[in-house]
Design a protein around this nucleic acid. Structure first.
Length: 218
DNA sequence: AAAACGGGGGC
DNA sequence: GCCCCAGTTTT
């Protein structure tokens, strides 16, 4: 451990945040099923939860598996996901993903990070979310929320999300990664928001220079 | 490292 | 009107 002081700070914050309970959007929509989780995660990119939660079930109702989605036309998909941003790109990619699943993986979603990340429109975040929520495998997909928290609490000094991921992996046991991800994402969406964070309601404001300054402005 | 994709909601 | 949204791909 290069920085035991940092490790202690991270652990202290995570313990306080462990009082948080509740499910995440991807856990609700995906229901632990690989195909549902994959589709939900791809469509959720740069889209608010409320829109994703309304649109994705309609997609899955019409195309419940890779076999049916692979023979759909992107235009058909586009009509259904129209409320989501980037829908032109995403409709083409969804069909392409389904075709690739049929061609290379027997119509199943691979339970392998390296295979997932090769699907079109699937990056580190999406692959990590599928591994965590669909396969229950250890993965810590650091997103903008977790990265923002990491910066405000001064866990990392660079703008690289990978640095945050490494810092967390160093101090959190593998079987807790999904739980830690849930805690931090939930905290980032509700309290530690990008603008006007609710430091007055924050459980860890005392561990955060940003929070201390916000609660005791001078 | 930065731009592009992109409609919809909050303020 | 401006900024942001459980990112990924391209330049």
């Amino acid at each position: 451990m290069a920085e035991p002081e940092l490790a202690k700070r991270i652990i202290r914050v995570l313990k306080k945040l462990s009082a948080i309970h509740g499910s995440t959007m991807l856990a609700r929509i995906g229901g632990g099923q690989p195909f549902r989780t994959l589709v939900a995660t791809i469509l959720s990119a740069r889209v608010r939860d409320e829109v994703t939660e309304q649109v994705v079930p309609r997609v899955l109702e019409r195309w419940p598996d890779a076999e049916s989605l692979a023979v759909a036309s992107p235009h058909q998909v586009e009509q259904v996901i129209r409320r989501i941003g980037l829908y032109r790109v995403k409709s083409v990619r969804l069909v392409e993903v389904a075709k690739q699943l049929m061609r290379d993986h027997g119509g199943r979603v691979p339970s392998d990070f390296d295979a997932l990340i090769q699907l079109p429109g699937v990056g580190r975040k999406t692959a990590g979310c599928v591994m965590v929520y669909a396969f229950g495998q250890a993965a810590l997909p650091v997103d903008t929320h977790v990265h923002r928290i990491s910066n405000r609490l001064a866990w990392v000094k660079t703008s690289n999300p990978d640095a945050t991921e490494l810092a967390l992996r160093a101090v959190v046991a593998k079987n807790w990664w999904s739980r830690v991800n849930d805690l931090l994402v939930h905290h980032g969406k509700t309290i530690c928001r990008p603008q006007r964070p609710l430091c007055g309601d924050c459980l860890v404001w005392q561990d955060c220079a940003y929070g201390v300054k916000n609660r005791r402005p001078d």
